[in-house]
Amino acid sequence: MFETLDSFNSNSSPMTCLVVDDSAFMRFHLKRLIRSFKNITASEATNGDEAITEYQRLHPDFVLMDIIMPGIQGVETVKKIREFDPSARVIMVSSVAYKEMVEEAFDAGAKYFIPKPVTTEALRKAIECVLGAAA
């Protein structure tokens, strides 16, 4: 168990993150926030199908997942990733965050939910929560 993201990172090998969002700007923004943390590298996927393929290839430490995307949506993608890896740590990141949708995301296996717009502190707290809970 670790206290903060910085203390975890200073004693560990690099963590990996998969950013899944159909928006080029959101992938850019989330990767920019991730870069502000020490020792985390981020890969990206632009839709649900690509996310499943990349997850199976990379086995990232955690995933940042959008919900509303063309084609397979975020919640369904989480279910498929969790079928492949029941211990997958997924943080949902969505502009739509009504109660029913948040519950649906948690039922699918998501560990945390951040409404957009995403701040550095909200992301830090989410990462510490999902990694700490699994440590």
Binding site: S23, A24, F25, M26, F28, I68, S94, S95, V96, A97, Y98, K99, E100, M101, P115, K116, P117
Partner: peptide, 19 residues
């Protein structure tokens, strides 16, 4: 993409309240 995402966040927040 940044303009589209700004719009998406704005409308998404309203959709959440309405739901």
């Amino acid at each position: 993409s940044s303009i589209a995402e700004m719009a998406s966040m704005a409308i998404g927040r309203a959709i959440s309240q309405i739901n």
